[in-house]
């Protein structure tokens, strides 16, 4: 019985890696939103840093999701 350990290892590494990366980026995006809303509470104005942070992170998350859907759906190949 021959097991393709390399393939198994690759799938494991990519699964864990991408999951952690995507969730971390999303969490950073949420932190950006929190920064904006905290600034709004304190000063009345928003926080450009927070807005940029949130915007960039969520765009990155959307890109990961779009790529994942592209990989899954056979019509795209």
């Amino acid at each position: 019985m021959h097991l393709d350990w390399t393939a198994l290892g690759q799938v494991t590494a990519v699964s864990i890696g991408v999951t952690i990366a995507a969730v971390t980026v999303f969490a950073l995006g949420v932190l950006g939103v929190a920064r904006v809303e905290a600034a709004r509470e304190e000063n009345g104005t928003g926080s450009t840093l927070g807005l940029t942070q949130a915007g960039l992170c969520f765009v990155a998350c959307a890109a990961v999701v779009a790529y994942g859907i592209y990989l899954i759906v056979p019509q795209f190949h």
């Binding site: 971390t24 969490a27 950073l28 932190l31 920064r35 904006v36 809303e37 905290a38």
Partner: peptide, 15 residues
Amino acid sequence: YLAYRLTDRARKKSV
């Protein structure tokens, strides 16, 4: 775990 650690001290309602 990472999600919790990263957002631990941020504004609760937004998180």
